[in-house]
Design a protein around this nucleic acid. Structure first.
Lengths: 254, 254
DNA sequence: CATCATGTACCTTAATTACCCGACAAGGCG
DNA sequence: CGCCTTGTCGGGTAATTAAGGTACATGATG
C-alpha cells in the first residue's frame, strides 16, 4: 500500500477520540482517511430506507458538481448507503455490490460516480444508541493505492469511532428513558411485541383492567398517546428488544 | 501504562477482523484485552432495560463464583450494562457511574464486584444493525496498570469491531427488509410515528380507504398482523427513522 | 404520619383498527 | 396480450384501543 501503515495510524484514532468540536472531528477524520489513502468522504445521517427522511449530506472533498447532482437527483437513490444498512462492517464499492440486484436508477448513479473519476471507495453504516444510524462513504483513493482489507479496516475503525464521538458531541447528555416500574417495562415489552391487552393480561396472569391501567400509565410517563409511538420510542431508547437473538450462547461462547 | 502500547495493538485489531469462528473471535478479543492490560471479560447480548429479555451471559476470566452469583442474583440488576445503553462510547466503571443515581441493589452489585477484587473496569455497548445491541464488560486489570483514556479507547475499538464481526459470523447473509413500494414506505413511516389511519389519509391527501389498503399490504409483506409489530420491525430493519435528528448540518458540517 | 409510587381491579364510551368484500386505471414484463 | 404490481376508492363488521372515571392495599420515603 502506498499510504501509511498501521504504525502511524493509531495516533489518528486517538485524535478522533479527543476531538472536541464537530469541525475538528470532521477535519481529523478526513486526515485519518487521507492517511489511509482516500481524499474525500461524504456523510449521511440518518440513513433509512425512507430516504425522504432527514439524510443530511455532508461532503468533504468530492467534486462540487457531483454534490449538486447528488442533492438534486440521487439523494433518494444512492444504493451504497441503502446497502450499508444491512451489511455488517465496511465494504468496498462498487465491488461488493456486484451480487446485489440494482434498479436502473441505482446503476445510473454508480455510472455517474465513475464518470467523475470515483470508481471505487469504501462505505459503511455506523449504528448508535437510540437507533441513530449514520453512513460514511469514502472515495477518491490516491492513484496507486490498493483498497485492501487493511485499508477498509482502518476506514471502518476511524469512521465508527468518529460516529460515536459525533453523537456524543451533538448530544452529550441525552435524556435518559423515563423511569418505568418493573411491571410497566414488562407490559411495554409485550406491547412492542404487538400483543393485545387481552393477551398481555393472559401472559401476566392479571386482569385486562390492570393491563389497561399499566398501558395508560406508560403512555403518560412516556408522553405518547398510542402504543405504536410507545413501542417505537421504547425501542429507540433501548427499553425493549426486538428481533430474534440466539437463546443460548454459541458453543464457542463469545 | 505497564501494558502494551499502541504500536503493538493494531495487529490484534486486524486479527479480530480476520476471525473466522466464534471461538476464535472470542480468544482473539480476549488476547487483545489482555494486551491492553485486562485479563477478563463478560459479554451480554442483547442488552436492553428489560433485563428479563435474553441477556445471554458469556464470561471469560472472571471468577466462577462471581458468574454463579451473577446468574442467580445480579442478572437483572447489573447497572453497568444498563448504563452502557445510554452512554456513547466506552466508560470506566465504577468511576463514570459516580454521578448516576443507583438503587440499593445496584450498589450491592458494585460492592460484590469489589469483594472479588474487581474494583474497576471498562464497559461499553456496541450497536449493530437491526437494533442488535451487545454489552462488553472488561475487568481484572493487571496490577499496576492505570485505566487511562488510551486503554479505554483500545478496549472500545477492539470490542466494537468484534461485535460487528460476531454479528457477521452468526448471520452472514441477513434477510434484507421486504421490498415495499414508495407509498407503502411512506405510510409505514407515518404508522411508526403513531399516526392514525385517518390522519395519514389527511397528510397524504388520499381517502382513508386507500390508507387501509396500504396498511393491509404492508402487514402482508412484513409478515405482521398489527401496526405496532410493523413499526418495531420497520425500525429494527432501518426502514424508518425515529428520534429527533438535526434538520441541518451543524456549522462545522461533519 | 402523610404522601407518593406501585400493583391490582372494575366500568363506560367513543374512536380506531383489523379484516372481509368489492372495483378500476396505469404501467411493467414475459 | 394476459399477468402482476401499484395506486386509488368504496362498503361493512367485529374486535381492540384510548381515555375518562373510581377504588384499595402495599411499601417506601419524606
Amino acid at each position: 500500500m502506498a499510504s501509511g501503515d498501521e504504525t502511524g495510524f493509531w495516533p489518528w484514532v486517538e485524535a478522533i477520540d479527543r476531538a472536541e468540536t464537530i469541525s475538528g472531528l470532521r477535519d481529523t477524520l478526513l486526515a485519518a482517511f487521507s492517511y489511509v489513502g482516500f481524499t474525500a468522504a461524504y456523510f449521511l445521517a440518518p440513513v433509512v430506507s425512507d430516504a425522504r427522511v432527514g439524510r443530511v449530506l455532508t461532503n468533504v472533498g468530492f467534486p462540487r458538481e457531483w454534490e449538486e447532482r447528488y442533492r438534486a437527483e440521487f439523494y433518494l437513490i444512492d444504493p451504497i448507503a441503502t446497502h450499508a444498512i444491512t451489511r455488517r462492517g465496511a465494504f468496498c464499492w462498487p465491488d461488493d455490490l456486484a451480487e446485489t440486484p440494482l434498479k436502473p436508477a441505482e446503476r445510473d448513479y454508480l455510472a455517474l460516480l465513475a464518470d467523475y473519476g470515483m470508481e471505487r471507495g469504501v462505505g459503511l453504516a455506523s449504528f448508535g444508541p437510540f437507533a441513530r444510524t449514520g453512513f460514511v462513504g469514502v472515495g477518491l483513493p490516491r492513484s496507486g493505492i490498493a483498497i485492501d482489507r487493511r485499508s477498509i479496516l482502518m476506514v471502518e475503525v476511524a469512521a465508527r469511532l468518529a460516529h460515536q464521538r459525533y453523537l456524543r458531541l451533538i448530544d452529550p447528555f441525552p435524556n435518559g428513558p423515563p423511569s418505568l416500574s418493573d411491571r410497566e417495562i414488562e407490559v411495554l415489552s409485550l406491547i412492542a411485541q404487538g400483543k393485545s391487552n387481552a393477551v398481555i393480561a393472559q401472559l401476566l396472569d392479571i386482569s385486562p383492567s390492570s393491563v389497561d391501567v399499566y398501558v395508560k400509565r406508560i403512555f403518560t410517563k412516556m408522553g405518547v398517546a398510542d402504543r405504536t409511538s410507545a413501542s417505537v420510542r421504547a425501542l429507540a431508547m433501548g427499553l425493549v428488544v426486538t428481533g430474534r437473538f440466539p437463546k443460548q450462547s454459541h458453543s464457542g461462547r463469545l
